[in-house]
Amino acid sequence: MIDVQQVSRYFGDVAAVNDISFKVEKGEIVGFLGPNAAGKTTAMRVLTTYLPATSGTATVAGFDVHEQSMEVRKRIGYLPENPPLYQDMRVRDYLEFVAKIKGVAPADRHKAVDEAMDKAAIGDVSGRVIKYLSKGYKQRVGLAQALVHNPEVLILDEPTVRLDPNQIIEVRQLIKSLAGNHTIILSTHILPEVSMTCERVVIINKGVIVAEDTTEGLTKKHAGATRLTVSVDAPLQAVMEKIGAVRGVTKVEKTSGDHTTVFVESDKEVEIRPEVAQVLVANGWPLYELKAEDVSLEDVFLHLTTQEEGPVE
């Protein structure tokens, strides 16, 4: 559905996006993840035909974003970072206008606007002037604007920013429910959002893609080490010695806890939990806790965007 091949975009000498390539299949939800100024918005603007790429090609629904931009534009719904709202219009009039310029047939326009307002849950403000709406409502009007012509592809730049927690949950559910019929790219710097809504993640940093995988795949691949927290009722010195002797363990250190609690790190390929348990049982120490710590997407993100310079593979 979306195919980006070696796209770069320069502003003067600065590359906002440098040689990125990725594909999105029909019906997928893909998250663009990256710190501020990583190039997420620029990449999306290239896809929406707002900005031409300096080099490289991108196609959306089989149409080149530069050569056949009008065809692409008919098939995308785009919510920019700042929702593009005409402040002095009423919500309904605004959506009718958007439906008109997006090419919705006059006969279907009324229904299309109703449906979009329904999906974005803004039916109760349809007669209000946009500038008097709260930020959350404005954001949702922006979302309705992207949906009004029922586009094949949705490109959402930080769709949940400015919303309150309840609304964030609603919008995430809305986005998930749209997958399947729509292909969705959304950008965010909120990490839980990606693991909750997206099937696949593209992490961008300084204009290059540093990782691209499913959320589970990413956390697995970049886990580095397996970490265990072990809490037993036994002398610290003995515990550290015995656990340290287990094959694969690379580090044992004391951490705080009610009992004798240690923090164990091991090579990522080796599963040490059974052996550690055995050691404890063999010594007759009462075990209170044996917990493997998950490496969160957050750790992966920090790891990728603060240390790596080039693509990780």
Binding site: Y78, N82, P84, Q87, V98, Q145
Partner: peptide, 14 residues
């Protein structure tokens, strides 16, 4: 200023 230009220039309007 308000960013609506992005709507205009990503819609099928020449």
């Amino acid at each position: 200023r308000t960013g609506t230009i992005e709507l205009l220039m990503t819609s099928p309007v020449t």
